[in-house]
């Protein structure tokens, strides 16, 4: 029995060493001491996925975020009648980060592995230690940049639809005609654009 226990411990240590090696290759951890990466690895759970495995599904409850350590993942959203691929996640990217901030949040998209992949599960508790761990601090800075990018791309999409809506309204005001058919055309086209960008029923 003691030998078996030692075996589990050794396997875990080997796995952690491999995760640390992969993490240290990521740009955000370039200047982070190995000891801080080791602490991050101890605090989070590493999971391996095969091709086609589901990492998270749209609508599921979100309680954590994930960091892709190695491999490649595909993101899709379910719209009214189809599945729309919206992007690819590369090593070093964090996803599902809303799970770190909202206790009852839901996943907005489905993520599948399209290569053998390894992810690190990040729980909100990890962030409590960012004041004395450089790896967690680096993770938070990376998260800030990721969220800012996400906000900018959502904003860009919204601005495009807003511009169309504004032009339609200006046109309608200029004509001063309350035409039911043009109203239907307006709401229909904006709705179609919003649905194609953000999904929907």
């Amino acid at each position: 029995m003691p030998m078996r226990g030692l075996g589990v411990l050794t396997t875990e240590r080997v796995r952690n060493t491999m995760v640390i090696r992969e993490l240290s290759k990521l740009h955000m951890f370039k200047k982070v001491p190995k000891s801080d990466l080791a602490r991050l690895t101890e605090l989070s759970t590493a999971s391996n996925y095969g091709i086609g495995d589901c990492i998270c599904r749209q609508g599921e409850q979100a309680t954590n975020a994930m960091l892709l350590v190695s491999g490649r993942l595909e993101v899709s959203i379910q719209t009214d009648s189809s599945v729309k691929h919206i992007g690819v996640i590369h090593p070093g990217e964090i996803f599902g980060e809303q799970g770190l901030f909202h206790s009852k949040g839901k996943r907005n998209a489905t993520v599948l592995a399209n290569r053998p992949s390894q992810c690190l599960t990040l729980t909100p508790d990890i962030m409590r230690l960012s004041h004395d761990n450089e790896a967690i601090g680096a993770l938070e800075r990376h998260l800030i940049a990721t969220m800012a990018r996400r906000i900018r791309s959502t904003n860009k999409a919204i601005q495009l639809v807003w511009k169309d809506a504004q032009q339609e309204e200006d046109r309608k005001n200029a004509k001063k005609v309350n035409d039911n058919s043009s109203q239907e055309e307006k709401s229909g086209s904006i709705l179609t654009k919003l649905r194609s960008l953000f999904g929907g029923k």
Partner: peptide
């Protein structure tokens, strides 16, 4: 981070 998260969620 909390502010960015609120911005995204509210939007």
């Amino acid at each position: 981070l909390s502010s960015l998260s609120m911005q995204l969620t509210t939007a």
